[in-house]
Design a protein around this nucleic acid. Structure first.
Length: 443
RNA sequence: GUGGCUGUAGUUCAGUCUGGUUAGAACGCCUCGCUGUGGCCGAGGAGGUCGUGGGUUCAAAUCCCAUCAGCCACCCCA
């Protein structure tokens, strides 16, 4: 006892001598079981749905020039101004960790000459993105996104295809109560007209607005509609709405979008206050929500993702004119949501667990493992352990259907014992028949 | 960036108000009972910078200050 105390004291003194204990950064998180199991599941569902809708996978860099985001997402947006991880490299490049995916995808489209590929070009990707802001549940500084982009069609039915796929994806993940909110923010022309109308309307009321809104008035007037501050709410009801100021073309486009939704039975909620604040968006914008049923009293709606049409994006980056539409989903939020349903993920399972007794047997087992590489039977083993009890316990933990037991006697006879873990019945077979017996017995 | 709540074993938490032997429980992990057979049961064991730093005190997980992190709200969205 005294010896132990002495050692402990020494250890903690050593650790204390480290000036900065190594800890994870604020807003970062390790993705470990069970969350990582949802990540894997989501990824494979994405793959399935992507191929059904004809999307190809690509990877884009995590690090890009700051200019990419300033020009496409917009230099006045919060994302770029306040939330971007931006820094200078040793070589003097001004770079940023991607705060979102669309900018990089558009850059990749231009740089790889995809306008010369067979059209349309449909691409998806997935990975971490970064925003420097205060973390909260379901809200990290490094977070994972799923991103789908459809290039080279201005047709309104494409908007609907993209939205339908988004809803399809979320449902395929197993999410219920998926809700689609929809709006149109027009083109540069009609948005300009609308902005002026909004300014006229709010000018006389500016004094009564909250502090944030006062600054929004000059910086980005559309954002006044997003404000959730109570003192600003009364003005919203009578504020002019974007939909009333759409130009002829934009209006026709939006009418068609709504028409296709009706025909397909794709449910949506029109939200005239939905303003996606990024520069590259035009016309159709949308967000996906789910009802958070956990809280009593209806529950707040939880944002799962959003997107829209971004016909201007390539021009903003000095590329060929290319209409496009897409969306992004938040992986952690979806994983958290699925985690609330305990049935939605299964524990790790094997079909057969190898149990070995004695030195020659553990070597034999390790040799056998390699032979199973083309066999569908899922196997488990732990040659690092000698205790039989521990090995059987482990077999249980993996819900093994069978135990394959090889001891000194079996090594001598060139046999193995197959134990049915439920019934406890054991049979002995020649070792050469191991694969065949397992393939035959495993359901 | 602003405000509120919370930080104690791997996990969930007691203990803090009212300072005082060696900081506990449950679950999980490991070993053994059964040296060649798992689940159940029983016995034992490992595991703690009490978030971190400073202060008050004879004495701090407990009181005070600072700081960091998490959660919540604002902001925004994934």
């Amino acid at each position: 006892m005294p010896r132990r105390k002495k050692e402990q004291g020494k250890v903690s003194r050593d650790r204390k001598s480290l000036k900065h204990p190594v800890q994870i950064l604020k807003g970062m998180h390790d993705v470990v079981y069970p969350e990582v199991a949802y990540f894997e599941q989501l990824r494979s569902v994405c793959q399935e749905v992507a191929s059904r809708y004809g999307y190809g996978f690509l990877e884009v860099p995590v690090l890009e020039h700051q200019d990419l985001f300033k020009k496409s997402v917009g230099g006045t947006t919060d994302i770029v101004q306040k939330e971007m991880y931006a820094f200078k490299t040793r070589g003097g490049d001004e770079v940023a960790l991607r705060p979102e995916f669309t900018a990089g995808m558009v850059r990749a489209y231009i740089e790889n000459g995809m306008s010369n590929w067979p059209q349309p070009v449909k691409l998806w990707t997935w990975g971490p993105a970064f925003r420097y802001e205060n973390p909260q549940a379901g809200r990290y500084r490094q977070f994972w996104q799923i991103d789908f982009e459809y290039f080279t069609s201005a047709d309104p039915i494409v908007d609907v295809e993209v939205m339908q796929m988004g809803v399809d994806l979320l449902k395929s993940f197993g999410i219920k109560n998926v809700c689609l909110e929809l709006n149109s923010i027009g083109c540069w022309g009609c948005r300009d007209t609308y902005r002026k109308q909004l300014k006229n309307y709010y000018r006389s009321k500016k004094r009564k607005l909250c502090l944030d809104c006062k600054s929004r008035f000059d910086k980005n007037i559309l954002r006044l509609l997003d404000c959730k501050n109570e003192q600003c709410q009364p003005f919203k009801t009578d504020a002019p709405q974007m939909l009333d100021y759409l130009c002829k073309e934009c209006n026709a486009h939006f009418k068609k979008v709504l028409g296709y939704c009706e025909e397909l039975g794709l449910g949506y909620v029109l939200n005239p206050f939905l303003v996606r604040g990024l520069d590259y968006y035009n016309r159709t914008v949308f967000e996906f929500f789910t009802q958070n049923s956990e809280n009593e009293g209806g529950g707040a709606k939880l944002a799962l993702g959003g997107g829209g049409r971004f016909d201007y994006s390539t021009q903003l980056l000095a590329g060929p004119e290319t209409p496009a539409c897409g969306f992004a989903l938040g992986v952690e939020r979806i994983a958290t949501l699925l985690g609330k349903d305990p049935k939605s993920i299964s524990e790790p399972t094997v079909d057969a667990y190898f149990v070995q007794i004695g030195e020659p047997a553990r070597v034999r087992v390790l040799g056998l493992i390699e032979k199973f590489k083309r066999c569908r039977v899922r196997i488990g083993f732990d040659v690092g352990r000698e205790s039989l009890r521990a090995q059987f316990k482990s077999a249980d933990r993996f819900h093994a259907q069978f135990a394959v037991i090889i001891g000194e006697k079996e090594i001598f006879d060139n046999t193995f014992i197959l134990r049915d873990m439920v019934s406890g019945i054991q049979e002995t077979f020649p070792i050469d028949t191991l694969m065949d017996v397992l393939r035959d017995r495993v359901k």
